[in-house]
Amino acid sequence: MYYNLQAPTYVPFQGYLGYFARSEDMVLKVILQSISGERNDELFYQELIQLAPTEKEKEVIRGIRDDERKHNQMFRNIYTQLTGTPPTGIEATEPIEHVSNYLSGIESALFGELKAFEKYRTLYLNISPLYRDMIFEIMTDEIKHASYYNWLYAKNNR
């Protein structure tokens, strides 16, 4: 007896999107959340820089912080292009986290970068192809940041 097997249809992870999946409202909502999230990350990393024990570690975190600023601007540009108006009234979607100590801050940053990558991957799959290159750049930066934070964690957890 032979079975006719079909490959399963790929369905992107919907955990961050709820019932808005595959709609313009969802894309705009995620972009607004991302603008807020990138700003929160920038502020968190600024605090983390102050706790970094070496100049090299400060330099790495400064580079990540500067990328978060760039992402914030990219998301603002995408939102403006999609809606015709700049984003306004953006409130923090998550409470601003403060750094309690360097090692736990690095751990929190590492998991935050990975979580952001997952969210942006879903955005990438649902946004107009015109904006995918920008989202791809942001996604690859997030993975790069996670790698740097992994290195910082390993270096300081001996």
Rank of each mutant, 00 (worst) to 15 (best):
M1T: 08
M1W: 05
M1K: 02
N4T: 07
Q6S: 09
Q6I: 04
A7R: 04
P8W: 03
P8S: 05
Y10T: 10
P12W: 03
P12L: 04
F13Y: 10
G15M: 09
Y16F: 05
G18S: 05
F20S: 11
A21V: 14
A21P: 01
R22Y: 08
S23D: 12
M26R: 13
V27Y: 07
V27T: 14
L28D: 14
L28W: 10
L28N: 15
I31A: 08
Q33V: 02
S36W: 11
E38F: 12
E38G: 09
E38K: 10
D41K: 00
D41C: 03
D41I: 00
E42N: 02
L43F: 15
L43E: 10
L43A: 06
F44S: 00
Y45P: 01
Q46F: 15
A52I: 00
T54I: 01
E55T: 07
K58H: 02
V60G: 04
V60F: 11
I61L: 06
R62F: 13
R62A: 08
G63D: 01
D66R: 06
D66H: 03
D67E: 13
E68T: 03
E68P: 04
R69N: 14
R69M: 15
R69E: 14
K70Q: 12
K70E: 06
N72K: 15
M74P: 09
R76N: 02
N77M: 09
N77K: 12
N77S: 13
Y79C: 02
L82M: 14
L82S: 04
L82K: 09
G84H: 05
G84R: 05
G84D: 08
T85V: 06
T85Y: 02
T85A: 06
P87F: 04
P87D: 02
T88I: 05
E91W: 05
A92W: 13
T93D: 14
T93V: 12
P95S: 14
P95K: 13
P95G: 09
H98W: 01
V99M: 04
N101E: 09
Y102D: 02
Y102W: 12
S104R: 11
G105E: 05
G105D: 03
I106D: 00
E107Y: 11
E107L: 07
E107H: 13
A109D: 00
A109T: 01
L110G: 05
G112F: 04
E113G: 05
K115N: 06
K115R: 08
A116N: 12
K119R: 15
K119N: 04
Y120S: 07
R121E: 07
L123C: 04
L125H: 12
N126R: 11
I127N: 13
P129D: 07
D133W: 14
D133S: 15
I135P: 14
I135M: 13
F136K: 15
M139R: 08
M139T: 05
D141R: 15
D141N: 14
E142F: 01
E142S: 09
I143K: 08
H145I: 10
A146V: 06
A146M: 06
Y148I: 11
Y148D: 10
Y149V: 13
Y149G: 09
N150V: 08
Y153C: 10
A154I: 13
K155F: 00
N156S: 05
N157G: 00
